[in-house]
Every structure is written in C-alpha cells, then in structure tokens.
Amino acid sequence: MNIATPVMKRTIKDFTSDQEVRWCPGCGDYAILKAVQKTLVDIDADPDRTVFVSGIGCAARFPYYVSTYGFHTIHGRAPAFATGIKLSNPELDVWLITGDGDALSIGGNHLVHVLRRNVDMQILLFNNEIYGLTKGQYSPTTQKGTRTPSSPQGSVDAPLSATLLALGAGARFVARGIDRLQKDLPGILARAHAHKGASFVEIYQNCIIYNDGVFEGLTEKGIGEDHRILLEHGKPMIFGRNRDKGLVLNHDRLALEVVDLGEGADTGRLLVHDETNKTMASMLAAMEGPDMPVALGVLYCNPDASYEQEVTARENHDRVDADRLNAMLRQGRCWTVGEDGTGSGG
C-alpha cells in the first residue's frame, strides 16, 4: 500500500484560545484577530513554535486570544522582549502586536531599533489614532485638532506617519492594511511572514468608542475605492471604483499625481510598483487624502540578512563542559603556589 498520509490542515479554531475575547463589541480588533488566525492557517503555522508578544493597550490583549505561546509584557517594550526571544531561539516564529500609543509614543525608541536591526518578526501596529484603554486621549497619530478628554480644545500635536518612520528607521518590509478590508489583510500578513527580517505592517483599525469612523473614507462601500490604492509589485498603479484613476510622477515637482484614465488615456506614463524602490515607497507612504489615495499592500520589501542570523553566526553554541570552562579561567598569566607556599609562574 502506498497511500500518502492525509495532512490535516489546521483551522481557525486551532488558533483560538479558551479565553473570552474582551474587546468592545464592534471593535476593529476582532477583524484583525480573525485575519491573523486565517493567516496562521494559510501559512500552516506550528502553534508550538509560534509566539505572540505584545506591550500594553487594547491591542496588547491579543496574545491571550491565540492558542500559541504568548507574552503580554509592558508598555512600549514588546520589541525588546521579542528581540531577546529571537536571539535566544531564532527558530521561534515571533509576532509582535502593538498600537499607535504603544509603538509610536512610549515605545517609539524600541520600534526604531528593532526595525534598523532587522530582527526577524512580524510587527503589526494597530493604528486607531486614539488611546482606547485609557479612555480616549489623543495619540501620536491623532489628527491635529481632535477633541478628546485631554485635548478639550482640540489637539495641538502634529501626527506622525508610522510607515515613514519605519522607512526612516531602515525597515526592510513596510506594508499597510485596514481592519475592514478582510479580503486583503491575510495576504499582506502572509507576505510579512514570508519576509525574513523585521516586517512592519500598519493596520488602520476602527475604535468604535473613542474614534469611530476615522477611516470611514477609506472603507465605505462605493467611495473608499476612490481614496485608496492596493499596491502590487510589477503592476501599474491603478485604483478607483471603476479603476479609472492612476498614479504618475510629475518630474518637474518630483511628486506623485493622480491622473484620470479616461478612454484614450496614455497609460504608458503610469507608475509601475517596484517594492524594492525605497524612494518610491517613501512617496507612496506619504500619500494622504483628500487629493491622493492612501497606499495599501506591500509598500516596500527589500530583504537583507536578519539580525539574529548575523549574531548567531558569530557565536559558538556548542555545549560548554567543565574542561572548557577550566581552560577559559586559565587564559593569560597564571601561577601556582605549592604546598610549601612558594610560587612559580605558570
């Protein structure tokens, strides 16, 4: 008999823990959890070798809901914990779950360094442009002028761009998705997982309580398509509900421009997405409404050796026995004192 053993594909249930999910009803996090679980099924993840690490915030509860290994750490520091985990055991598949406050405010420093070091992990930044868990204060990505309990007259701080920060920090993989675009998200996450090194994915996430509808313009049926573009490597940059708009480069202004693709339009001028082009990635990451579409998908992917690979290649991980340790302690100048108390240089 020569019958191949049927491979039992895992299901979303296999990646669901027994803990009750405690996000607010209607929170965008539910959709992201589902997308991640679907991705884990798609990539055939091994729950025993998968670790979810998080900091503090609504998103940071995520690891409790996935039936893999999980570590809910302290505010902003998850990248450092994850780096330690990867240096200790590079075989582990590490997913880092963070939010806009966790990653860009209290943990901004760690985000920068995990990206520049290119430690192999998937970093999912749930960006809802607000502090949820602490009840609605403005965050580092909140639009200027937003009224919150801590900014009753409207926030004064200018928001920062997570993707531009990531590119500036030297990230080798930068992507963007939206909680409500369930069709696209698992594909983006699978790409992030396939990339060896630090993969940064910003996910726009709706906070139904404190910042409801902030991304509605991008997701609303019939309108959203005109305000977002899903990038695909090697494909011309076309978007719009009727796929009648495209992106071109205005050489005089060194800026991207939207052009109408009416009948007889010159499609030769359309930009073709090259995800290895960092300059283009930066221009795409910077696009924002109302005049420009928001870039989604893989903005940049340009792999390089990952940190933990380079570090472990320089080390000797062979078992260290007592003889080797004894030799280590005796390197350099030693001397022996005899039974009679006299010394001799060794």
């Binding site: 750490t73 520091r77 450092a80 914990f81 780096t83 330690g84 240096l87 360094h113």
Partner: peptide, 20 residues
Amino acid sequence: FQAEDEIAAVCAAIGASYAG
C-alpha cells in the same frame, strides 16, 4: 546584546529567559 537603552536591555534579557 548592546541594547538601545536600559529598558530594552532588561526586557531583552527577560525575553531571552522566556525563550529558555
């Protein structure tokens, strides 16, 4: 591991302990 700051250093060490 020369970390980016003191906090990252202790966190990386705890992460390493977690991973064995």
